[in-house]
Amino acid sequence: MEELLKINNLDVKFDTDEGRITAVENISLSVKQGEVLGIVGESGSGKSVTAKAIMQLNPGNTIYNDDAEIIIDGENVIKFTSKEDLMKIRGGKVSMIFQEPMASFAPAIKIGDQMVEQLLLHKNIKKDEAKTISLDMLTRVGITDTEKRFNQYAFELSGGMRQRAMIAMALSTMPKLLLADEPTTALDVTIQAQVLKLMKDIIKEYKMGVIFITHDLGVIAQTADQIAVMYLGCVVEKGPVNEILKNPKHPYTKGLIAALPDVNNLEAPLKPIPGNIPSPLERPTGCVFRTRCPHPTKEGKEGKIDMKLVEVEPGHWVDQCGAKCG
């Protein structure tokens, strides 16, 4: 199937009082039509920053490298500057479900008005049509009393309802590419299952491409086709989701899987990956994971192996340093 999104060699840096922070370093990812790419990784690994780069939503102190490409429908959107061009991606071809639903609703405007306004902006439809679509979407994400919720403000909804309203709003414009940043973290598992099913149906029906960001490997296993594991701004492993979860090669991916709480053994202690994530101001040279690697090779530990993905099985890519250690 056709490639909808292609990210090539993207770096994202931020200028701050304390110096330049590297949030994302040299990542390349792609999403086909109808495909779900799951991104997992530690807090601060650069998942949200990557998604925001696609929408060109990172703040003014952001610096992209000159040779970075983010290609959607054949156009390099990273070079977009005009308002018209940006409108084509934001809410048009691309929709985003934000990690903080509170931040994505204007506090003083009713939920319904925001949904309608967004539809009117991007679709050639009338107001009552927009309202019908919005109410229908709210129902489909499992919200009841939709007419009433429509007239409420974001702060009046519970965390999970806000998140579902956000999902409804993002799906209502039927984007080609959906960026979902932790879309179901605030939902209880039964509603999560319901919402995931709805998302999968809509993705299939409209052949959307999706980037699904979550720290929940169980959710990834249920929804994604491909997975990319990020650590400190780098992709350390990527490939088909079943292959990676069954046969992880990178010590970080292995650590994440081992840290999953075991519901069948409540006595077992929780097993975090030892050590702390370095501050983005103190990125290790060479393999970014080497300060926490349980069984590093000698060269790896000394930072002598540069980061570079190598293909270990067809479609299964691992950072070359991580592929060598235990």
Binding site: V40, S43, Q99, L217, G255, L256, L270, I273
Partner: peptide
């Protein structure tokens, strides 16, 4: 701990 990955959650 909802927004944190499993390893940090455990920690």
């Amino acid at each position: 701990v909802a927004a944190l990955d499993v390893s940090i959650q455990a920690d």
